[in-house]
């Protein structure tokens, strides 16, 4: 997936919506910018499959040696799949944050959530501001 084609939450999660299977399913992950900011990742806690989540709710945590960040769900819905291979291969977050580094798939409850997300350019702008 190309970062340009994705939507982003202000809290640095990305979203890609797949409508091919009928009801829309969002794949989510965390952005390259967030991965870099966290530095050496050591631990990832995934959400449980089947859990109902609301947009903005914490669904997991990601840790470096001396910092910890929540992963917030950018959308509301049901968690239908998680990337089980990821916690044991955190390098994927560095190497391919928008591909192999995906975190979870969420069956969308309300497509209106997507309107609250940022397009790539707007997100880049936010990162540039945070970087200062």
């Amino acid at each position: 997936m190309k970062p340009q084609d994705l939507l982003y939450a202000k809290t640095h999660e990305w979203v890609h919506v797949d409508r091919s299977g009928g009801s829309p399913v969002a794949t989510i992950g965390i952005s390259h910018f967030a991965v870099e900011a966290l530095t050496d990742l050591v631990y990832l806690e995934l959400p449980e499959v089947g859990r109902q989540v609301k947009a903005g709710q914490s669904i997991g945590e990601i840790e470096s040696v001396k910092a910890v960040s929540d992963i917030y769900s950018p959308v509301s819905g049901e968690i239908v799949e998680v990337n089980r291979a990821l916690p044991d291969g955190l390098g994927k977050l560095n190497d391919d944050p928008y591909g192999d580094g995906w975190i979870a798939k969420i069956k969308l409850a309300d497509e209106a959530d997507l309107k609250n997300l940022l397009a790539h350019a707007a997100y880049e702008k936010q990162c540039a501001e945070e970087g200062h």
Partner: peptide
């Protein structure tokens, strides 16, 4: 595993 602790979390 210091991220469990109060000085970080």
């Amino acid at each position: 595993l210091q991220t469990r602790e109060q000085h970080i979390r």
